[in-house]
């Protein structure tokens, strides 16, 4: 299981009879970074949840190397970095504890870390430059450090697939640059990466492919072909002339998607 390919075929997801995602189809290839772009409530988080197997599609199917997600979950193959809003930052755990949670899938019943687990955690923390902060309680971190901690957990998990939901929301420039750099390294080593972001300006710098989404997939393909002003305007449902306007309009709030979590 080295090169992981994800096939999303005609997936429809509904919550309480309300369709959140309609007939979505796309393929994610190993060694690529795919950007997911859409308004709040456009179905980005829903797509992540469908891939993770957290919601059962009303129609269609999702296959990971030809197998349904439930068959591959135990192998820690898919690492998921949630939005920061979903985390209880007052929880009495340290940075190191959180990153170690990425290794639980490899451990025995009592979850006693082996040397290989300790090593993976240390390496992940060093890659995001958080090793010095490892004993901090997670609530004592800055926004960027929080994101890096959860990114380190995904690294420590050593999944071949990375799903990142808004990893750049509320982070400093240094963290965003570092994470983009790490994502590009992971692409080099054949990882399959799907990332949702509102930072439209940075997408062209590191995403090989782009998915534009608004309740269904509006456009999907190579960034150079799909990431056009015309397509973006369709995605954001109006005449969004330039990227900076789009970014500033989209930054605050997440209410609509929160309702579905």
């Amino acid at each position: 299981m080295n090169a992981i390919r994800i096939d999303i075929e005609n997936v429809t997801v509904a919550y309480h009879g309300k369709v959140a995602l309609h007939s979505a189809s796309l393929q994610l290839q190993a060694g690529t970074i795919c950007g997911l772009v859409g308004m709040n409530g456009a179905g980005k988080s829903t797509l992540f949840k469908a891939i993770m197997g957290f919601v059962q599609p009303a129609g269609g199917r999702i296959l990971i190397n030809g197998l349904p997600i439930r068959r591959v979950q135990k192998s820690s193959l898919v690492a998921y970095v949630p939005q920061s809003e979903e985390v209880d930052w007052n929880f009495p755990v340290s940075v190191h504890d959180v990153v170690m949670m990425g290794r639980y899938g490899y451990m025995n019943l009592l979850r006693i870390p082996r040397l290989s687990d300790q090593r993976a955690v240390r390496e992940a923390l060093e890659r995001v430059e958080m090793w010095q902060m490892r004993d901090r309680q997670i609530g004592e971190l800055s926004g960027g450090q929080k994101k890096r901690t959860f990114f380190a957990r995904a690294l420590a998990q050593q999944g071949k697939v990375l799903l990142l939901d808004e990893p750049f929301a509320g982070v400093d420039i240094k963290t965003e640059k570092m994470m983009i750099h790490l994502l590009m390294e992971l692409r080099q080593t054949g990882h399959t990466i799907l990332i949702s972001t509102h930072d439209l300006a940075s997408i062209t710098t590191f995403c090989d492919q782009v998915v534009l989404i608004n309740r269904t997939i509006l456009a999907y393909g190579n960034t150079s072909e799909v990431f056009t002003a015309e397509n973006l305007s369709r995605t954001f449902g109006g005449s969004v002339g330039d990227f900076s306007l789009a970014t500033s309009q989209l930054a605050p709030g997440n209410q609509e998607e929160q309702e579905w979590t």
């Binding site: 957290f54 979950q73 192998s75 820690s76 755990v93």
Partner: peptide, 22 residues
């Protein structure tokens, strides 16, 4: 005692717990 860490993870982040097949 046996499920200590699993229960901590369940309380802290059940999404992650699910994603690694717990």
């Amino acid at each position: 005692a046996i499920l200590r860490k699993d229960l901590i993870l369940f309380c802290f982040d059940s999404t992650h717990a699910r994603s690694i097949g717990m």
